Amino acid sequence: MATVVLVRHGRSTANTSGILAGRLPGVELDELGREQVARAGERLAAVPLVAVVTSPLERCRSTAAAVAAAQLTQPAPAETLDDDLTECGYGDWQGRPLAELAREPLWKVVQRHPSSAVFPGGESMAGMQSRAVSAIRRLDRAVEAEHGAGAVWLAVSHGDVIKSVLADALGMHLDLFQRIRVDPASVSIVRYGADRPEVLATNTVAGELSWLAAEKAASTATVGGGAGPRAAEADPS
């Protein structure tokens, strides 16, 4: 089983200005965002990433480049762009202030019943989840086939996209995905097994992750929860 590390882009200029950036070009990381992604790179520096796949939007590409540049154990692979990891197609909502959008009737649908939400001139949230989950699972199979079951790879994307992937991995209906929080430059970790996905972490913004390089994936869930990653790291076998 390969392991995917899901990283949201760092804080962007649109985040700080309260604008729904969507797929607008030219939206980059702000100063804090650059600091955030540098920290994410430091956290993952000791984890050998065999592939780096990113949304094609600038804020994600900058994030992926920063994480890849921090790799210590091997030269980082070149970033690969995948359109299926791009931001939700917000259509006519794109580029508008969030405070203004919050007064729209659709806002409540997005909050309470996102599976029914279709952005005018854009994408449905269900469609976003479908293409994102399909992409992550497709890429994960390809990574495992090429690099083996212990491989770890990086996917850099956007808040709603990562939330929808985590909701799927957790077996949650899309209408519950607003219960999941994904902060800028946060790290979430999923491993897709034969029986089910295993969510190793969500929305972490601090703490070292070197244990991920040494952890051995189990084929089934351990009854009682197991001893945790440190035991796997200490196991000499």
Rank of each mutant, 00 (worst) to 15 (best):
W153K: 01
R230T: 11
V161K: 05
T204N: 01
E100Y: 07
T54G: 14
R8A: 10
R230L: 13
R131D: 12
L106E: 03
R39E: 15
E198W: 08
P25A: 07
L49Q: 08
A155W: 04
G171N: 08
L98Y: 13
G159V: 05
A68G: 00
M125A: 02
C60T: 15
A217V: 08
Q36A: 04
D183N: 12
A185H: 02
I136E: 04
A227D: 10
A99C: 00
D92T: 08
E215I: 07
L209R: 12
G148D: 12
L209A: 08
D235H: 11
E215Y: 13
A69C: 04
V50G: 05
R34H: 07
Q36D: 03
A145T: 06
M172G: 00
A151L: 11
M128H: 01
K163P: 00
V7S: 09
G207C: 11
A213K: 01
V182F: 02
M125G: 01
Y90D: 00
L85W: 11
G207K: 05
R137Y: 07
L174S: 05
G224R: 12
D195I: 02
V118N: 00
L106R: 12
S134K: 10
L81F: 02
D140I: 11
E233Q: 14
L200N: 03
L49C: 09
T204F: 00
L6A: 03
R34P: 03
R103G: 13
V50W: 09
D84M: 03
A69R: 15
D183P: 00
S17A: 14
H113D: 14
R43N: 00
G18I: 02
S188R: 11
L101I: 15
L212F: 10
A126M: 09
G207E: 06
I189H: 01
A38Q: 12
M1E: 09
D183E: 15
R131N: 08
L154V: 07
G18V: 02
V223Q: 07
H158L: 04
E215D: 10
L176S: 13
E58Q: 14
K216V: 13
R61I: 04
E100A: 13
E87D: 14
G10K: 03
M128S: 04
T63V: 05
R131F: 07
P75H: 07
V152W: 03
V165I: 15
A76S: 14
L170D: 06
L106K: 04
V190H: 08
L29S: 05
